[in-house]
Structures are given as structure tokens and as C-alpha cells.
């Protein structure tokens, strides 16, 4: 009931105003709580991602960064809360969302080529029981070209470097031509060249009005890469434009007790102070 006509009909009980969901927000999360075995991983998360932004999610290990991304697209069950993608539930907005999982989530020895993987992003458009046709392969190649892997199209995916594997996953999301991209640690363990090309790609996406939400681990690059940042530690510590929100106080609150990370954070900030 509520799922269908929530925004129009006020409900007496339960968490109030669904009007909080802005209809044009690519990703709007309200009062979301997720728990694994009774241990809360995300607690009462509220979030309205502005359209056309590049959002970095940072926070210590176990802060629920990946879980947030997965819960947004129903990959992990939520205890409570609602997610809206451009004003509608994920089920009816599936095609507008491109998801890039962590590289370690699959077995790279699997007998498929780079092009095979890229084309997987088109399966729902190709439809059941149909072969991957030439048009799909052409689009797969285009996506591979965008991530600089066109020369590797026929290569088995185990014979790629880590960065190339990450870019293969990106290509698979790019073929979907989505409006919202959710990326889980795309910068983890990639070479400098790949990191640069991913950043370039993100900016390209933003310049065409797309939105990207990226789980990120390197505090040093947050300011350079993202215009918005979400500081997460089970709860939302802060969310907003990077300039305003990425402050020592917020970082301290996010990483409290984790000394080494705190040092890293202050180093990142001091670096930023000396060279823009």
C-alpha cells in the first residue's frame, strides 16, 4: 500500500513525511536500517543524493559503506526504511541503475572473455532465451573503448591486471547507459593509470548529467574526485558538498578511535591546505 501511493497519502503511524523524498533525486534513502545477525550495520540512514553529482562514501572498515550501496538496490534485505530511485522503487527503475560490484566478488578464472562480461550489462534488454546479438556486441565494444580495453576484448578475464579487471566491470555498467551509477570500491588495488581513467570517466558521466555514488577508501583523494561526500559510520555522520562537510571534526567523528586512520585523515587535510 504504502509502497504504491506513499507520497500522496499521509500515514498516521510510522516514520513521517515521505514528501522528504525528492522526486528528482537519483537516490533517496529514508530511515534505512540494516542488520546482519542482529548486529546493526546501518542505522537510520537518511540521504538525498542531488542529481548530477559525484558522491564519495567514506568511513572506517565495517562502517556499512558497501552495505548501503547493496541495500539501495535490494541486494541485501533491510530491516526498515525506504529507497527511492528517481522517485520510484528500485524494481521499476532497474534500468536506470548501473551497479559495479567489488572486484573480489567474482571468480576471475571463469571461462568468459572481456567482451562477454561487458555484454552482460545488456542481458535484460536482449531478453530471455535470445543470443547476444551483433548490436549488443557493438555496444559492448563501445563501452570497452571508453575504458581503454578494446584491444583486450577477446581475452579471458584471468589474463588481465587488477586495474583492467576493474575497468571490465565498469564497461559492463556503462553499456547499460544508466542514470545512476553505484560503484563499490572501484579504486581498490588498481594502478595509477586505471585510477586516472576511472576519474575521467566519472567526470564524463557527470558532464552528461549522470550521477555516481562511489564507495571510496582513500581520504587523500576525496577532495579531488568528489563534489559531495558521505561520511558514514553505521549512521550518517555528515553528508553534503565536499567543501563544507569534509572537515577535521567530521572526520574525527567518523573515524573516532581509529588512530591510524585519523592520522591519515589529518595528513590528507594538511596536504590539501598546502597544495590545492
Amino acid at each position: 500500500m504504502r509502497e504504491v501511493d506513499g507520497p500522496k497519502e499521509p500515514v498516521e503511524t510510522g516514520p513521517p513525511p515521505f514528501s522528504e523524498h525528492s522526486a528528482d533525486s537519483p537516490l533517496s534513502i529514508h530511515a534505512m536500517t540494516v542488520a546482519y545477525d542482529r548486529r546493526p550495520v546501518l542505522w537510520d540512514v537518511d540521504l538525498d543524493i542531488p542529481p548530477g553529482s559525484l558522491v564519495g562514501i567514506v568511513g572506517p572498515n565495517g562502517a556499512g559503506k558497501s552495505t548501503l550501496v547493496k541495500a539501495a538496490i535490494d541486494l541485501v534485505p533491510t530491516l526498515s526504511g525506504r529507497v527511492r530511485i528517481f522517485g520510484k522503487p528500485f524494481q521499476s527503475r532497474r534500468r536506470m541503475v548501473g551497479y559495479v560490484p567489488q572486484r573480489e566478488s567474482v571468480d576471475w578464472e571463469f571461462p568468459v572473455t572481456v567482451l562477454d562480461v561487458a555484454c552482460m550489462g545488456l542481458y535484460d534488454r536482449i531478453g530471455w532465451c535470445r543470443r547476444v546479438n551483433r548490436a549488443a556486441k557493438e555496444r559492448g565494444m563501445e563501452a570497452l573503448e571508453r575504458v581503454g580495453l578494446a584491444d583486450f576484448a577477446d581475452r579471458q578475464i584471468a589474463r588481465l591486471s587488477g586495474g583492467q579487471q576493474q575497468r571490465t566491470f565498469l564497461a559492463r555498467a556503462l553499456v547499460q547507459d544508466a542514470h545512476l551509477y553505484l560503484m563499490d570500491e572501484p579504486f581498490a588495488a588498481v594502478d595509477a593509470a586505471t585510477e586516472e581513467s576511472i576519474v575521467e570517466l566519472l567526470r564524463e558521466l557527470r558532464s552528461t548529467g549522470r550521477t555516481a555514488v562511489v564507495v571510496h577508501h582513500d581520504l587523500q583523494t576525496v577532495r579531488r574526485y568528489f563534489d559531495h561526500v558521505l561520511l558514514l559510520n553505521t549512521r550518517v555522520v555528515a553528508f553534503g558538498p565536499t567543501e563544507e562537510v569534509f572537515t577535521p571534526e567530521h572526520l574525527q567523528a567518523t573515524y573516532s578511535g581509529k588512530l591510524t586512520l585519523l592520522e591519515e585523515a589529518s595528513e590528507a587535510l594538511s596536504k590539501h591546505g598546502s597544495s590545492p
Binding site: I73, R94, V97
Partner: peptide, 22 residues
């Protein structure tokens, strides 16, 4: 033969398959 493409995707990356609505 009919479900080759879907079986392959589910075997390779079930999480992604679910995200695509399979």
C-alpha cells in the same frame, strides 16, 4: 541452449544478475 546466457551470468556473478532483475 535456451537459457545459456542466463545460466552463465548466474554462475559468474549472481549478485549482478539479481541487480539486473534476473
Amino acid at each position: 541452449l535456451l537459457f545459456f546466457k542466463e545460466f552463465r551470468l548466474v554462475c559468474f556473478d549472481p549478485g549482478f544478475a539479481r541487480g539486473r532483475g534476473l
